[in-house]
Amino acid sequence: MVDQDRRGHGRTAMSAQVKVSHEVFGEFLFSTRDISDGGIFIVVEGESFDPAIGDTVEVQVQGLPVPAPVLEMQVVRKSNDGFGLQFADQ
């Protein structure tokens, strides 16, 4: 049997609110579904957010006691319910 999962990092379920900024679509608040050493998956429901694979976005975790850093990420996967984002330095 061939393994169809080509991800290089194990995923951990994690729900956090993140602000995602795209130069064309603007800013949105989304929830994460999981995180790994390589990136995150954001759940997008009913929003007009539809970046192309390869687009760069800025992501910042919300709701922390101090402002989180803004991270540059790249859209690497699209599914029916959201997008896989890879950390830009990967």
Rank of each mutant, 00 (worst) to 15 (best):
M1C: 13
M1S: 14
D3T: 15
Q4A: 09
Q4F: 15
Q4P: 05
R6N: 14
R6K: 15
R6M: 12
R6W: 11
R7E: 07
R7P: 05
R7V: 13
G8N: 09
G8Y: 05
G8T: 12
H9N: 06
G10N: 08
G10S: 11
R11Y: 08
R11M: 00
S15P: 01
S15W: 07
S15C: 05
S15H: 06
A16Y: 02
Q17N: 12
V18G: 04
V20S: 01
S21C: 08
S21K: 09
S21H: 09
S21A: 14
V24C: 03
L29W: 08
S31K: 10
T32G: 02
T32Q: 04
R33C: 08
R33K: 11
D34H: 08
D34G: 01
D34T: 02
D34C: 00
I35S: 03
S36R: 04
S36K: 03
G38I: 07
G38M: 10
G38N: 08
G39C: 11
G39Y: 02
G39V: 15
G39S: 07
G39E: 05
I40Q: 06
I40T: 08
I40H: 09
F41E: 12
I42N: 08
V43M: 04
V44Y: 04
E45S: 10
E45N: 10
G46Y: 07
G46W: 12
G46A: 03
E47W: 10
S48T: 13
S48F: 14
S48A: 15
P51Y: 01
P51M: 03
P51T: 10
A52V: 05
I53E: 01
G54E: 09
G54F: 01
D55R: 00
T56N: 10
T56A: 12
T56P: 04
V57D: 03
V57A: 06
Q60K: 10
Q60M: 11
Q60H: 07
V61D: 01
G63D: 07
L64A: 08
L64Y: 09
P65Q: 02
P65W: 04
V66R: 10
P67R: 12
A68R: 06
A68E: 09
P69N: 05
V70A: 14
L71E: 13
E72N: 14
E72I: 11
V75S: 01
V75N: 03
V75M: 04
V75F: 09
V76D: 12
R77V: 06
K78E: 15
S79G: 09
N80D: 10
D81S: 12
D81P: 01
D81V: 15
G82Q: 05
G82V: 11
G82S: 09
F83P: 04
F83C: 06
G84V: 03
G84D: 02
G84F: 05
L85N: 00
L85H: 00
L85G: 00
L85P: 00
Q86R: 13
F87H: 14
F87S: 05
F87V: 00
A88S: 12
A88P: 03
D89A: 13
Q90M: 13
Q90F: 12
Q90N: 11
